[in-house]
Amino acid sequence: MKLALKVTPNARKNECLGWEDNPLAGRVLKLRIAAPPVEGKANKEIISYLSKLLGIPKSSLEFFRGETGRLKIVEIPDTAGKTLEHLEFPK
């Protein structure tokens, strides 16, 4: 399953802000990531954070597209899609 993300690096902490409609990518999950977008640090942190958030191993996550931009598409296991439906986001 492909998961579209809109990522803001250099945040104070890692957090998931919920869903947003994006004209380029459709429905995207908004993330703030504490790591800087330098030398792949933010991408590594995205994989680590999604792994914890979805309760799946890091090795089951893979970038499909957008490794150098804010809009990213990550390949996740189909079973993790059910976890996404039950996530609660800050108000």
Rank of each mutant, 00 (worst) to 15 (best):
residue 6 K to S: 08
residue 66 G to H: 00
residue 91 K to T: 08
residue 70 R to K: 12
residue 67 E to M: 14
residue 81 G to S: 15
residue 74 V to P: 00
residue 77 P to T: 09
residue 6 K to Y: 09
residue 31 L to Q: 04
residue 25 A to G: 08
residue 27 R to E: 14
residue 38 V to N: 06
residue 25 A to N: 11
residue 90 P to A: 07
residue 69 G to R: 12
residue 45 E to K: 05
residue 32 R to K: 14
residue 85 E to K: 15
residue 35 A to K: 02
residue 25 A to E: 12
residue 8 T to E: 06
residue 47 I to R: 06
residue 51 S to R: 11
residue 63 F to P: 00
residue 24 L to P: 07
residue 22 N to G: 09
residue 61 L to D: 12
residue 15 E to A: 03
residue 27 R to S: 14
residue 80 A to G: 08
residue 8 T to L: 03
residue 31 L to N: 06
residue 36 P to F: 04
residue 89 F to P: 10
residue 53 L to K: 09
residue 33 I to L: 02
residue 89 F to R: 09
residue 16 C to Q: 06
residue 6 K to V: 04
residue 85 E to P: 04
residue 56 I to Y: 07
residue 88 E to I: 13
residue 11 A to Y: 00
residue 76 I to G: 05
residue 87 L to W: 08
residue 29 L to D: 01
residue 83 T to W: 05
residue 19 W to L: 14
residue 63 F to H: 03
residue 74 V to D: 04
residue 76 I to R: 03
residue 5 L to Q: 02
residue 67 E to F: 07
residue 54 L to M: 05
residue 40 G to W: 02
residue 90 P to I: 03
residue 21 D to I: 13
residue 43 N to P: 02
residue 74 V to Q: 02
residue 67 E to W: 07
residue 65 R to I: 08
residue 52 K to T: 13
residue 85 E to T: 13
residue 78 D to W: 14
residue 19 W to N: 07
residue 54 L to E: 03
residue 87 L to P: 11
residue 34 A to C: 06
residue 30 K to I: 09
residue 52 K to F: 10
residue 66 G to Q: 05
residue 45 E to S: 03
residue 34 A to V: 01
residue 47 I to G: 02
residue 5 L to A: 05
residue 58 K to C: 12
residue 34 A to S: 14
